[in-house]
């Protein structure tokens, strides 16, 4: 696995992400500056981490989506390269057109940091092969704008094509508005693009990989990716 973690000014979970990638794959990721125009040679996974790129002073992710490095990411994705966006990374991918929809303010209009339960919808993708379909995992969220919204046609397509990877759920896996903390449509926590090689998700699997922190449910995502890329290599 030769991953590249994008660093925009104001991003703040790049260190958490790099540490997790190193922990799970054994390989130190490259940190790629927003003003660069090329990804390191041989990159097989691009990760857009969480934070507040450019302070989120415009719409979240809107400025980062127009940073020089994003052209390279778009062409990498167009060739089928794997791209993972988490939290602000998800917002950036939506703003850059790599994923449909938008992340609006949480329905309660407050930032929320807590552990949530996610139902993994599919296990036959590079991102979710570390899990079983229907499995419930516990990972933290930390965002003010995680309320996924798209037009009816887009939602219908996402659902029809099985592109919802994670949904907010009760601990038993049932979809329940009481467990959908940000009000996302169809309890959507993470989706992929139509080619299936770009994943965006609001929760932070990278913060639940270490037994020291009390939960390793996020590890499957990175372990699955590492396994997939090892096989592909």
């Amino acid at each position: 696995m030769k991953s590249a973690v994008l660093v925009f000014p104001g991003i703040n979970r790049e260190r958490d992400m790099a540490r997790t990638l190193k922990l799970v794959s054994g390989v130190e990721p490259a940190m790629v500056w927003h003003a660069d125009t090329e990804l390191p040679k041989g990159t097989d996974l691009v990760v857009v981490p969480g934070g507040f790129s450019y302070g989120d002073y415009l719409r979240c992710g809107a400025i980062a989506a127009r940073a020089p490095i994003m052209d390279a990411v778009r062409s990498f994705a167009a060739k089928g390269g794997l791209v993972l966006g988490v939290c602000n990374g998800f917002q950036i991918l939506c703003e850059s057109g790599l994923l449909p929809g938008v992340l609006m303010r949480n329905s309660q209009l407050r930032f929320i940091c807590r552990d949530v339960y996610l139902r993994v919808e599919r296990s036959d993708t590079p991102f979710t092969r570390g899990y079983n379909a229907g499995q419930v995992i516990r990972v933290p969220v930390a965002h003010g704008e995680g309320n996924y919204i798209a037009d009816g046609e887009t939602i219908a397509r996402l659902e029809g094509e099985g592109r919802v990877m994670f949904r907010y759920a009760a601990p038993d896996g049932m979809i329940d508005p009481n467990w959908n903390h940000n009000g996302a449509m169809n309890a959507i926590a993470g989706i992929v693009n139509d080619a299936g090689n770009v994943l965006g998700m609001m929760p932070h699997p990278e913060n639940h990989v270490d037994p020291a922190i009390g939960c390793t449910d996020g590890r499957g995502l990175f372990a699955g990716l590492a396994e997939h890329l090892a096989k592909a290599a």
Binding site: R15, D16, T20, R110, F111, C113, A142, E206, N207
Partner: peptide, 10 residues
């Protein structure tokens, strides 16, 4: 405290 990110840093 749920309005504070208390997990960043891992």
């Amino acid at each position: 405290y749920e309005q504070y990110d208390h997990v960043i840093g891992g």
